[in-house]
């Protein structure tokens, strides 16, 4: 097996050694450096949905914001995890998520980053589309009982009763992963009380 090269980068002015192929998030965690996440799970392929793990990279006087859970480490990277640009982005992201869910995990982060304004209208979905449930059911359980439907602002998570009715009652492992608590609180374990695929399709029929 090919031996993985070492990669050296700087995170928050600290030199960090990582293995080739690691992401910035993994390298930071390994080094005990905190980067907040909501959609990350060490057993699942990184997804980049919540963007809370955004960090700032600088090189040659120019900087850019990247999603640390999907950005592979490179030699010489200079990373800032709490720069003013990063904090500004995180605050906006959290403010947007609060419009979808009042969940404790989001409230805690909001408090941490000093969010006071709530400028966005609540959408009452109680879902931030982190995809943990969908991805866990697909990648780990390989059951695919729950999935995404729709696109953009119409995207929702629904159970598929054809599968869910046979596997969910004895599993429910996604319940503890859900950052908003939607899964444990709004489902009978086979489908959401108010959102089946047919419910979703009815919403698509309404005029724009």
């Amino acid at each position: 097996m090919k031996k993985l090269q070492k990669v050296t980068l700087t995170i928050n002015d600290r030199e960090v050694t990582a293995k080739e192929g690691m992401t910035i998030l993994e390298a930071a965690r390994d080094a005990g450096i905190y980067i907040p996440t909501l959609c990350y799970h060490e057993k699942l392929a990184p997804y980049g949905a919540c963007r809370i793990c955004t960090v700032e990279l600088s090189r040659n006087g120019r900087s850019r914001l990247v999603t640390s859970c999907v950005y592979t480490v490179e030699n010489g990277l200079i990373v800032k995890t709490e720069s003013p640009k990063v904090i500004k982005v995180r605050k906006l992201l959290l403010e947007l998520m609060l419009a979808s869910s009042p969940a404790k995990a989001i409230q805690d982060l909001a408090r941490q980053y000093g969010i006071e304004k709530r400028r966005f209208e609540a959408d009452k979905t109680n879902c931030i589309l982190c995809g943990l449930c969908v991805r866990y059911c697909s990648e780990i359980k390989q059951a695919n009982a729950i999935g995404f439907v729709g696109r953009g602002t119409e995207r929702r998570v629904v159970f598929h009763p054809e599968i869910a009715s046979t596997v969910c009652a004895s599993c429910r492992e996604c319940f503890s992963l859900c950052p908003t608590g939607k899964l444990p609180s709004e489902t009978d374990g086979v489908c959401f009380d108010d959102l089946t695929l047919d419910d979703f399709l009815k919403t698509q029929q309404s005029p724009a």
Binding site: N144, G147, V158
Partner: peptide, 8 residues
């Protein structure tokens, strides 16, 4: 292909 993927 899982039915969830097809519906997606």
């Amino acid at each position: 292909i899982p039915i969830s993927q097809i519906y997606h």
